[in-house]
Design a protein around this nucleic acid. Structure first.
Lengths: 340, 340
DNA sequence: CTGTTAGCGCGTTCAG
DNA sequence: CTGAACGCGCTAACAG
């Protein structure tokens, strides 16, 4: 009942259980792993003894000895709404495949490198990196040691498997939607500096604008990937405002910040300005009225695919690095409307 | 460069490094832990050899042997905006104290029990449970094995340390704010069934309403703690609508769902109905206009305190289970206004 | 098929 | 600074 601390606290080990049950330690291992090799009577006896002693298998020792730890390491950005949407799917798929999941988050203060190191240090069987920002060279080094699955980033050179959404299509959907609503001066607020994931979306935006015959009306505004960045970008947008009547944002978090700041500045969304996000995160669905118009990525599908590829790699499927590109869809909410 | 898989892949161990550097394994350990006991020359030599061989310390083995793993286990609900706000603070505080953090999330499909088991299996030095929903009896059992710090839940019987916000004060702030705006029929949408954390807020609501002389106008509507639950509660609110002109929600996620559904139903917020949330999560700050009015919990402070207490417990401070109650503050946004 | 024994995995610890 | 034991569960080889 009382809280103890450093005290001896000798732990109950597999040996204690074996002694109590009157069998060998090896047999206890067999019982706890549910593998054949023990009689029902002994299984019962061992379970009973374990329960009485309060035995809990030690994951460290088990991981250390096993060849396959059956452990997938997942690195994610703690503040990302989209990553939060991916995790449940990853847990579900991993559990179904008989794998444990080790989570390691990165924040403004704790770098992605840190989180990757932690997972590698645990000797995970494979790594699933959500929206990685590390240089490709770094990812390549990591991939030399264990299978790496990247989610949501296009890689110039193939490294392990890559699961991502087709950003060219996504930006085209966004631009076409706005163009169909009569908008012609459509700006793009990008993902900010040092954001490797932003490039494809900028390129997609440019291509889509050209295809729509709006090449002369392109405008790219520096942004970022947080709500705060969205608020700052709104100021920039209004300051140098041209004829823009619509904006496509790098992602939902950024779009949120834009909408909030614009409305606070007395600019009506979508009355004066239409805003389109990117991700289709849970966040985008809970905007007052009927949600943010956004390019939806298939989070559940990406999560399941990432785990499936990771498991295949771990279990010996030594195929060439592959890229799986999923098509995005457009979800129309209340943040976009016909041009006034 | 190519992806390998199951292959032998013999790992570089501390022994390989020792051999290459011409020292003993023990010395390599000393060098890598940056503890005194090695000459600068040898430190250099060891680091060099490690780099050449690509040695990475094995966290499993290290954890296994160490008395103190210097590892804090954190269990959190993946979908909670507020938990997402706590994690950066936990990482920061733990890092500063020289501790690693092991994350284990729970979702709709993966129970909190599961996540706790995983952390216990890793032999974390202490557990920090964010918004735990497990029965107290279960927490007590866990606390027999290692220090447990609960965050955001009042416990009937003290178990380890508990860091929480004073919900009586919080609800009073909310009700008084609305009363001062002229509202008298103020409803509360609660945290839903089986939500142990909701009781204090309901009680706080009742007490505050009585104190404001509005005892006869209380109304408690079944809610939950997700955006979806908020949307459902909005329907209930409107269906049996009395004279309510204001609502206090169990938490921000719920409040969001309420606001969204209400506006979709043509009810203006705050024109027709004022809404107040609870948590002061990042989510609450990014509502279009100037945010949700909400009772703010001090996430950074709670995170830092949780880690501090955990570390103290681990390092032998065997004091009685304690409860740290932080005062909430009211953040006024645009979801509440003077009664029409 | 059921069960045992020995030794491994890898870093840490402590007496020498 | 070294050597060898140790932490704990798994795995292989072996015996009943």
């Amino acid at each position: 009942m009382t809280q103890h601390a450093v005290e001896p606290k000798k732990r109950v080990t597999i040996k204690d259980v074996a002694r109590a049950a009157g069998v060998s330690p090896g047999l206890v291992s067999i019982v706890f792993n549910d593998v054949p090799g023990a009689s029902d009577a002994n299984r019962r006896r061992v379970r009973q003894a374990a329960r009485e002693l309060g035995y809990r298998p030690d994951a460290r020792a088990s991981l250390l000895r096993r060849r396959h730890a059956r452990l997938l390491g997942v690195s994610f950005f703690v503040q990302s709404a989209f990553h939060g949407d991916l995790l449940p799917g990853i847990y579900a798929a991993a559990g179904a495949a008989g794998y444990e999941v080790a989570l390691s988050g990165w924040t403004a203060d704790r770098t992605e490198d840190h989180s990757i190191d932690a997972l590698v240090g645990f000797r995970c069987d494979a790594l699933i990196l959500l929206g990685p920002e590390a240089p490709e060279a770094r990812l390549e080094v990591v991939a030399e040691d264990l299978p790496v699955i990247t989610v949501g980033r296009r890689l110039v050179r193939p490294i392990g498997d890559s699961i991502r959404t087709d950003d060219a299509v996504g930006m085209r959907l966004a631009v076409e939607h706005l163009a169909a609503l009569g908008h012609r001066d459509i700006a793009h607020v990008d993902g900010g500096p040092d954001n490797v994931k932003a490039e494809d979306r900028v390129a997609g935006y440019r291509a889509a604008m050209e295809a729509a015959g709006l090449a002369g009306r392109m405008r790219v505004i520096p942004g970022g990937q947080t709500v705060e960045a969205g608020a700052e970008a709104a100021a920039r947008l209004l300051a140098g405002r041209g004829a823009e009547t619509a904006v496509v944002a790098f992602d939902d978090d950024l779009a949120w910040g834009l909408v909030a700041a614009l409305q606070a500045a007395g600019v009506s969304v979508p009355g004066d300005l239409s805003v389109v996000g990117y991700d289709g995160s849970r966040l985008s669905r809970i905007m007052p009225l009927s949600g943010l118009t956004t390019v939806r990525q298939d989070a559940e599908g990406m999560a399941a695919l990432a785990v499936e590829r990771a498991v295949r790699r771990v279990e010996g499927d030594d195929v060439a690095p592959g890229e799986i590109v999923l098509p995005p869809t457009l979800t129309i909410g209340s943040s976009s409307a016909r041009r006034a």
